[in-house]
Simulated assay, not measured.
Amino acid sequence: MPLLFPAILAMATVVVASNVLVQHLFGAWLTWGAFTYPLAFLVTDLVNLKAGARAARQVVLAGFVVGVACSFVGSQIAGEFGPLVTLRVAIASGLAFLTAQWLDVAVFDRLRQGSWWRAPLVSSLVGSAVDTVLFFSVAFAAPLAWVDPVTDVAWANEVLPLLGLGPQVPLWVSLALADWLVKLALALLALVPFRWIAAQWLGWRWRQAGR
């Protein structure tokens, strides 16, 4: 399939870039990786639109394999507080990516016959929410310390005001909320390239019909 290779390359690029950029802070609550990772949903949705759910799942699986490789490399690099990628973070990352992306594929496929914006927006929002909850809870929540007892996540469970302003919550909850808000904003912005690319693929009749 001609589309599959460039789609896998695009997904691999997003995954690798996000794994590198997540090591660099952006403000108090985010990393630069928060701005690149949501592009994975755009890649998945475009493949789903053009080639169907089966092809989209193949691209997701390829992205998962690349993510596992990135986690392995990160686990071999020593940072200031230990390996750049701990076992717990690696498990959380892989679980969140695979679950959220497959859910995105399923939701998009179910809604593909509706208005042009509904399938990409709803699928990305649902997938992003699941991705955020799974990653941050598995990686940092204190009750899940059994996942990787060796990794100390006490820093992530320090109780602070939510995003510096709200009620007292563990730090990881603020990190998760900030991450999800970025995903929400980018899901909306991604409708612009999605609409344009989809119009190029499906022709002027698709544009005229508002689909």
Rank of each mutant, 00 (worst) to 15 (best):
V66N: 05
L184Q: 05
F35I: 04
K50N: 05
R118K: 15
A176Y: 04
N157S: 10
Q200D: 02
V130D: 04
L95I: 10
A34K: 00
E80C: 04
D179R: 05
P143M: 00
L163K: 02
F72I: 15
R211C: 02
S128C: 09
F81L: 12
L134A: 11
A187K: 04
G166S: 14
F35M: 09
G203D: 11
A142K: 11
L181V: 11
M1Y: 08
L121F: 11
A12H: 00
F72S: 03
S18N: 04
L188W: 14
K183F: 13
A142Y: 03
L46E: 00
V138L: 15
A7L: 01
T44F: 06
N157D: 12
L181I: 14
G82R: 12
L134Q: 13
R211F: 07
F26H: 13
V85K: 09
V133Y: 03
G27A: 10
P6G: 11
S75Q: 09
A141L: 01
L121N: 06
V105T: 05
A106P: 07
Q168C: 00
V89T: 12
S18Y: 06
L165R: 12
V159K: 10
A17L: 14
F35Y: 13
S174A: 11
Y37D: 09
L160I: 11
R110E: 06
L103K: 07
I91P: 08
A156S: 13
N48K: 08
F136M: 12
S124P: 01
T36G: 15
F72H: 04
M11C: 05
G203A: 06
T44P: 00
V59R: 07
F108V: 02
S75I: 00
D104F: 07
G127C: 08
A78H: 04
S18A: 15
M11S: 02
P2W: 08
K183V: 10
G166H: 12
V59Q: 06
A141C: 05
V47Y: 03
A139H: 03
P143Y: 02
L87C: 03
R57N: 08
D152M: 09
Q58G: 11
T13C: 14
L30Y: 13
L134P: 08
L160E: 13
L162S: 06
I77Q: 03
E80R: 15
G74Y: 02
L39S: 09
D148Q: 07
A178E: 06
V89S: 11
W196M: 04
V173G: 01
S93E: 07
T86W: 06
G94L: 13
W116T: 02
L121I: 04
L165M: 13
F194E: 00
G210C: 00
F64E: 04
A78W: 00
S123G: 01
L4N: 04
A17T: 07
F81A: 15
P193W: 11
A139I: 08
F64V: 05
V20N: 07
V66Q: 03
A129I: 10
V22Y: 00
L98P: 00
L171Y: 15
L181K: 08
D45S: 10
V147W: 01
G166F: 08
V60L: 10
N157C: 13
A129P: 01
M11I: 04
Q101G: 01
L191S: 11
P149M: 12
W196V: 10
A12Y: 02
A142F: 01
A185Y: 11
V182W: 12
G67S: 14
L46Q: 07
W117N: 08
T44N: 12
A55F: 09
L49Y: 14
M11F: 07
G63K: 02
W201H: 14
L163T: 04
